[in-house]
Simulated assay, not measured.
Amino acid sequence: MTGSPRPPAPRAPGRALGRVRGGFVLRRVVRFAVSLAVLLVASFAMIHLIPGDPVRASLGPAAPVELVAARREALGLDEPILSQLLSYMRGVFRGDFGTSFLSGEPVGEIIASRLPNTLGLALLATVVALLVAVPLGMWAAIRTENGRNRGTEAAFTSATGTAVAVPEFLYSIALVAVFAIGLGWFPPAGQAGPVSYVLPILSLAISPTAMIARISRAETLRELGTDYVRLARAKRLPAPRLYFRHVLPNTLTATLTVGGLLLSALIAGSVLVEYVFAWPGLGLRIVESITQKDYPVAQGVILVYGAIVLVVNLLVDLLLGVLDPTSELKET
């Protein structure tokens, strides 16, 4: 006589979670690779979609035909499109972004010399925004909890809404007019020591600070309404311990996610701010390359900007998966 069949052994939760996380990471990496391939093709196509001959446009209408033909041959622009694309992709993976039409300098060297200035500005602006916005959002949530202090709520929402709506370059112009030209407290342009960072960082940080503060307030209000907070208050837990040890960590997931996305936006959005302050970064260089029709430089800078945005978004997704494991389970 045979016994009844045994039920299947339960799966080990750790192994199942490992498979979920492995699949989550794999999907993000595949998405990143596809996006990077699209970015490569798009940056290559940019120079070929420009009306007319980009070499002729860069050399000027009076340039001899022989010079234009020689420059096209030297740049490989006389080869078939597919051959140019493959050559371009091979060069990018080797760190070779081409050569400037005007100076003959390798585009990779131009990017390497200016990228640290742009990244430093964006990173500092992001840090300033987070350090100001998170406490500000928490303070506004605590002050306006359960409908209290309507005046504070109206002032907070109006001020942050207005700050988000104003573009960064308008902040740049206003700050230069008031604090550089009017009061003379800061240099109006250029990179001349630590004091020259103040106005560009403020120009980049004001709008993200307002946006993160609004998100921080909403997340804090949600946490303040949870059962564990009510229980902690019933036990008369000290306010600093309640807010900073329990409420703050639970509000940081959404805040840090938005902060990471804003970092990529600040890197890409620093172009006009760098132009206003004559900041020696990629933003100023891309404006100069477009106005001077130096297309390989513009092409390389756009590719680097896009790659940075993709990398930051990938890191934010992976960080969110670590901080909030439920985000992985929602996709399975």
Rank of each mutant, 00 (worst) to 15 (best):
T2M: 10
G3S: 14
S4K: 10
R19D: 13
G23E: 08
F24P: 10
R28F: 10
F32W: 09
A33F: 05
S35G: 13
L39Y: 02
L40V: 06
S43D: 07
I47M: 15
I47D: 05
I50F: 09
I50Q: 11
D53W: 07
A62Y: 14
A69V: 11
L75P: 05
L77S: 09
I81T: 10
I81F: 14
S83P: 02
S87E: 08
G91S: 12
V92A: 07
F93T: 12
F93P: 13
G95N: 06
F97V: 03
S100K: 00
L102E: 05
V107E: 01
I110D: 01
A112M: 05
R114F: 07
P116R: 06
T118L: 11
G120D: 09
A122H: 09
T126S: 13
V127L: 14
V127W: 04
L130S: 02
G137Y: 03
M138D: 01
T152D: 13
T157K: 13
A159R: 05
T160G: 06
T162F: 14
V166E: 02
F169V: 09
F169L: 04
A174E: 03
V178H: 02
V178F: 07
W185E: 10
W185P: 07
F186V: 03
P188K: 02
A192P: 04
V198M: 07
L199W: 01
P200F: 00
A205V: 00
A210Y: 00
I212G: 00
I215V: 15
A218S: 15
E219T: 10
R222C: 03
G225K: 06
Y228N: 03
A234F: 08
R236G: 05
R241L: 11
Y243E: 14
Y243V: 15
V247S: 10
N250C: 11
V258M: 15
G260C: 01
L261T: 04
L261G: 06
L262T: 07
S264I: 11
A265P: 03
G269W: 04
S270A: 14
E274I: 01
E274Q: 07
Y275G: 11
W279P: 04
L284Q: 08
L284H: 05
I286G: 00
E288M: 12
S289Q: 09
T291V: 11
Q292H: 08
P296W: 04
V297S: 00
Q299I: 00
G300S: 06
I302S: 08
L303T: 01
Y305H: 08
I308L: 15
I308V: 15
L310V: 13
V316E: 01
V316K: 01
D317Q: 11
L319Q: 04
L319R: 03
L320C: 07
G321A: 10
V322F: 12
P325G: 04
T326S: 15
S327L: 13
